[in-house]
Design a protein around this nucleic acid. Sequence first.
DNA 1: CAACTTATTCCATCTGCCTC
DNA 2: GAGGCAGATGGAATAAGTTG
Length: 280
Amino acid sequence: MGSEAGTEPPRRVTIRDVAARAGVSKGAVSLTFNDRPGVSRATRDRIFAAARELGWSPHLSARSLSSSRVDTVGLAIARPARTLGLEPWSMEFVSGIESVLVERSCSLLLRLVRDVREEIAVQEAWWRGRQIGGSILADLRDGDHAVRYLVALGHRRIARVGGAPGLGHTTIRKAAFEAAIREAGPGGGRTVATDFSGEEGARATRALLASADRPTSATGPRWRTASSRSWTRRPPAPIRPPPRRSLRGAARPRRVGASRDARWPRPEPRPVNDGPNHDP
DNA sequence: CAACTTATTCCATCTGCCTC
DNA sequence: GAGGCAGATGGAATAAGTTG
């Protein structure tokens, strides 16, 4: 498309423009917008004012480039589009994920696929293309894949926020989880029982975080239970979320896999299921 | 020591230069 | 002209250095 003579497209406002407007360096702008110390209150106010005037906010791609972090989580669901809205758990599942991601200024990349094989292929393609910094793996046929994956990421203390003891499916999942933990080797896992409610999940998770040997990752029977707020919302001091953590949740009756922090060493793509897309 | 600047780094893509 | 290579580019984060 040709441009008319003398009408250049407007140039994108960058951190450099904000720095120039505020009369500081790019570094000071970066420190300010990342809420890091080293910039006075007055200078921060000046930088925020300059950014407002210019309508600037951090460029996500550039941020990903420098920090090796992608603030997008991928979710591929093997479900026909027309039935998705008819399944209450699906909508609750997605909305639960969103409620957590929004608090962390993260985005959800959602795609509907035909089957588990395609789901895994899509996730791996996203991952290879660095389109996502974390994955939510749904529809795995057997739950210990997720635990294996967490172990592959480097997690050695994995907790499971489970349902009420005595229920059949709770017992089965607990046994599967413990078997996978044993197989993974030294480190160990713990299961905390809840009544499946978000409040109970939050309480249990908070208790895990407060413990001396707090887990580096957690799994749960439902996304809202596993992730429920306490992992993502800043907990009361001095408890802080583990700097590197993975969340996993499962919405009945399916199992859900792992998400990961992009700052972790990137493991080689590994077979989760048999599929056409595996590297040798 | 707080407040700030500078230099380096990230990595896919593009451009320019050189050789065959 | 084709192919290969080196260097520049984009925007932001951050470690290290500087200033008062």
